[in-house]
Design a protein around this nucleic acid. Sequence first.
RNA 1: GCGGCUGUAGCUCAGCGGAUUAGAGCAUCGGUCUACGGAACCGAGGGUCGGGGGUUCGAAUCCCUCCAGCCGCACCA
Length: 571
Amino acid sequence: MTSTYALLQERLSGAFSALSPGADPVLRASEHGDYQANGVMALAKSLGRNPREVAGEIVARLDLEGVAEVEVAGPGFLNLTLTTPFLGAQLREIAANERLGIAPAAPRRVLIDYSAPNVAKEMHVGHLRSTVIGDALARMHRFVGHEVIPRNHVGDWGTPFGMLIEHLIDLGEENAVASLSIGDLDSFYKAARTKFDADEAFAERSRARVVALQSGDPETRRLWQILVDESVVYFSQVYDLLDVSLTPEDVVGESAYNALLAGVVDDLAAAGLLVESGGAWCVFPAGFTNREGEPLPLIVKKSDDGYGYAASDLAALRQRVGELHADDLLYVVGAPQAQHLEMVFAVARMAGWLPASVHCEHVAFGSVLGTDRKMLRTRAGVSVKLVGLLDEAITRANEALVERHVALDDESRDELALQIARAAIKWADLSTERQRDYVFDLERMVSFEGETGPYLQYAHARQRSILRRAQDTWSLAAAPFALAERAERDLALGLVALPEALESALALSQPHKLCTYLFDLAQRFTAFYEACPVLTAPEGTRDERLALCELSARTLATGLSLLGIDAPDRM
RNA sequence: GCGGCUGUAGCUCAGCGGAUUAGAGCAUCGGUCUACGGAACCGAGGGUCGGGGGUUCGAAUCCCUCCAGCCGCACCA
């Protein structure tokens, strides 16, 4: 089906284009009508004509018979008011449509790089953002019909592995595995770090171990693999807990590109891009300077002959485009990496590995701050363990359920508490514009009042409750949709607006656009719920209102699922 | 110094060229209480949209400039 917005856009564009090809109607929802088109003023200006006169001409060319009433207002706004039969027909189509009226997009292959924890290191709140945002984007892209290639670019290579492997040897393999398998990654890492800093002999062994690892020494590789495997098992547990769709198959860590690094350097050299500087091999993309105003290098090969992470990033990008044929590359990585990624992208373009036809984007997100507005960082020792946070949220959700005397056996209540906890945490993260710094306030995010995940879940549960009570004494297909009450009409307009909300969330890689829509829809529903009795309404009206409940519940559940949030039927 | 991001009610945030009073949630104050589940609803107070210029019929929204905060700026990833 064609969404309401898309249909209006198409008709308006036709009329605008008749006056000036390609002119944008600037269509959006409005309080002055159901929708408004603001493009007339800009068009009139470019034509050097009177806006109201242009508006009149557009209205004359506009074919919206049976769809909407059009009115010219103010300096030249077009206010569109949908006809009730049309709005009702759109609702009927949505009701009959598995995908709630979302038209399938022309399929693209979308590679999303997200989560990226470090081997033998705890996942902390910083990883939460990448994981949750990336997963929401993956779900949304899949829903509209794209092929998603998730990539978990875990940190599984580099100098720290010398000390980690030596520490593993000191502990003994069995003890080390036991420690890692219970998710005690941080104390493992810290112990290794402490020894490295304090014990020169250990540090010396560690450095030698790095060399052995990089030269492919089989025993060293075997020990390294233990660290990687145990960590991936642990990450998977966290993803399950979070209900994140990443699997071990999506893990393609930095080490996976080792064999390609020499080729990257050779080809950059062959292209004449590689410059030796201070003993390191570098590319100098235009437009980047250091403190002294001198050109800033992207170091692909360090002066000690090791490869930097720029090299593996380049290798990965090259493979993602060249071999995996991704149409879109989304890097869900923190904002502090912005310059690095821009340089990687720039160098990839210089080398011809990133053609203009491929859309490549740094989906940046802000830092995690404490309530004191200071950075929350692992190395400062104040990091919040991701799992610890989840546990706390689960505990609070469980307490709330007990308090409310929700009649459930322990197992069901635990499951429900988990769903609520996930909703609280994910919504808190996804509902703000991602590039802002994120104030991490446990108290606020697990609070079940106001604009929170649990509130949305609750709105959905109430809808399901009404429908449960109605049983099957009504028919969605037979609902008349007279939309006589203002609240019914407002709700209908909300129901019809999912496609443009999702489209805008995808176009901008901004999940919060979808959150804003869902919260608005929930508010429209509660207004309807207050004003319009459902179960006690006269027969025809009852069917209509039950249908509005059903469509609201479906829309909320679907929208939440695209954010990775469950919508339980009861809570 | 250069670059990036951010600056909107006490707090946390939407809005990012449009339409007499700039929205929401929390908090505060006051209501709704025989309730289709009160994790709800209704109402009130609270903002010169960081400052200043400019473009425009119209600017929180675009441009310039200044200020503040955070982040990045060569061999850790």
